[in-house]
């Protein structure tokens, strides 16, 4: 990949018009809303957006209002990648007939439910076909729009309304699906993870995803105060802590070549700077039960799994 010809400075970004505007009805402190705002600041020109059913779709287009200043379409939950495929195909056909000039970018937004679970078939198909679009997964780790049900993106130990922490079961018993690695396995040109705590990194990666020819997948970590049960002011802090604890490391894979992003390189180069997962868990009441003596072991299990995944990632990045 050539060196980027763009740079994102705060001064430049605050001047850029809002394409995802105020007046949307996301909860106070919504992480995904931050993700969408940031990504829409990374666009390079005419852009069409499609949204899967989910929090961001619902809160941004409560009829007759819309928070979108770009052409936008929602059709269903499991098919946002097929929407993007259709839009991109239409644009190609129109270009062939010289109905427009230049480039029109296509961005698909979906939550974790719409990506890890019900939307993975359409996503996989679109990736295999090689449509030129950026798929953004805003991951708040459960079906928040419908009332905090567990998804394939929910982490181990989290209590949700369908994986409640009970007397014998400590919340979700399975581990989070490594969705970004699954997308790398599709051999698409660009896959990256990002956290809303590092806005420049989010913008850079979104822009890279738009610039590459073919499918790009951006997995954005976006905490949810309502579902994770923490004070609304802590959204960005938790998003940062997830990176610092290597719960959610930041990396990108350009044409399948993994590299750690600067924020995660710190933990790789100076392992003593890698914070313990417990720091992250204790800030969120979805993990509260893990601090009962009966479930104490789960915290060890979680730390071990995080370390194992981190070790695997370091190997992929040639940093082991």
């Amino acid at each position: 990949m050539t060196l980027p010809s763009w740079k994102f400075t705060a001064k430049e970004i605050v001047k850029k018009p809002e394409l995802f505007t105020s007046g949307h009805r996301a909860c106070a402190g919504c992480g995904p809303a931050i993700a969408l705002r940031q990504i829409m600041k990374a666009t390079r020109g005419p852009t069409i957006v499609t949204n899967a059913t989910g929090c961001m779709e619902v809160v941004s287009t409560i009829y007759p209002y819309t928070a979108w200043k770009v052409p936008w379409i929602h059709t269903a939950f499991e098919n946002v990648a097929a929407n993007a495929s259709g839009i991109e195909a239409a644009l190609k056909a129109m270009k062939r007939k010289e109905m427009y000039k230049g480039t029109i970018d296509v961005i698909a937004f979906a939550g974790d439910g719409g990506t890890f679970d019900i939307g993975i078939q359409a996503l996989s198909g679109a990736a295999e076909r090689g449509h030129d679009f950026l798929y953004v997964l805003y991951d708040n780790e459960a079906y928040m729009n419908t009332g905090i049900q567990r998804s394939g993106g929910t982490p181990h130990g989290a209590s949700t309304t369908t994986s409640p922490a009970g007397k014998v079961i400590p919340g979700k018993t399975q581990f989070k699906k490594p969705i970004a690695d699954i997308m790398v396995a599709h051999e698409i040109p660009y896959v990256a993870t990002a956290s809303i705590a590092y806005w420049q990194d989010v913008l850079m990666k979104a822009r890279k995803g738009l610039e590459v020819e073919g499918p790009a997948f951006l997995h954005v970590f976006a905490p949810c105060p309502r579902g994770w049960r923490y004070d609304t002011s802590k959204t960005v802090e938790i998003a940062r802590l997830a990176v610092e604890t290597c719960v959610f490391p930041l990396w990108e894979a350009v044409n399948g070549n993994y590299s750690l992003s600067p924020q995660s390189k710190i933990a790789a180069l100076k392992p003593d700077r890698k914070k313990p997962v417990i720091d992250y868990l204790k800030m969120q009441r979805r993990f509260r039960h893990l601090f009962n003596p009966s479930f104490e072991h789960e915290r060890i299990v979680i730390q071990e799994r995080i370390d194992k995944r981190w070790g695997k990632l370091l190997k992929k990045c040639d940093m082991a």
């Binding site: 970004i13 001047k15 105020s22 402190g29 705002r37 940031q38 809303i196 960005v236």
Partner: peptide, 14 residues
């Protein structure tokens, strides 16, 4: 200029 960028509601302006 961090706050205008991380505000979920685009309600902080420069």
């Amino acid at each position: 200029l961090l706050c205008p960028i991380i505000c979920p509601d685009a309600s902080i302006n420069w």
